[in-house]
């Protein structure tokens, strides 16, 4: 392989060492080399958001990031988020609110919403729409997606309050 790069990266908590071509996009590395096909490829020039993944806890475009740029970093995909159970409530809300039809954009939406719920746990609908503006859905028209994320935010806030009350009573 011409211009081989020895990549060492943590993906969904597991150490991965692979030889990659420098031109390999992170999204192709995840899908083709690691078989993590949960993240999708849409436009391949940063417009649609289907390939959104987390690098060191921050959302990035998998098609605008080279695999070699993640050397030494931690990457998390929708598979990792799912297995950890951290977004089970968000996924349930998407299901209940019917926030997907074909599902192509859904992995990107879930990863983007994960970052939003961490950064702005009390996001308004307007803030949710703005944050999701880089993730295209061509089926549902966004309303149900915003609903699902808003519901998750409210449930998490209520859950935290409940936990705080319980802790106070226990003390």
């Amino acid at each position: 392989m011409e211009n081989a790069f020895q990549l060492a990266v943590k993906v969904n908590g597991a150490d991965v060492a692979k030889t990659v071509e420098p031109r390999t996009h992170l999204i192709d590395f995840l899908r083709n080399d690691l078989g993590l096909t949960g993240s999708h490829i849409g436009c391949e020039h940063g417009v649609c958001g289907a390939c959104t993944v987390l690098v060191n806890g921050e959302i990035v475009r998998g098609c605008l990031t080279l695999a070699c740029q993640t050397h030494g970093a931690e990457v998390e995909t929708v598979e990792g988020l799912t297995e950890s159970g951290l977004i089970a409530d968000l996924q349930t809300a998407f299901h209940q609110r019917n926030a997907l039809q074909c599902g192509y954009c859904t992995p990107g939406m879930l990863v983007c919403a994960t970052a939003l719920l961490t950064e702005k746990p009390h996001a308004t609908r307007e803030e949710i729409r703005e944050y999701l503006s880089g993730n295209f859905c061509r089926c549902t028209g966004y309303e149900a997606i915003v609903d699902a994320i808003e519901t998750t935010a409210k449930n998490r806030a209520a859950g935290k309050q409940l936990a705080a009350t319980n802790n106070a009573e226990a003390a």
Binding site: G46, G49, T52, I59, V60, R61, L64, C112, L116
Partner: peptide, 9 residues
């Protein structure tokens, strides 16, 4: 500037 995922990089 663009979207959050792009502003992160």
């Amino acid at each position: 500037i663009a979207h959050p995922a792009i502003r992160n990089r």
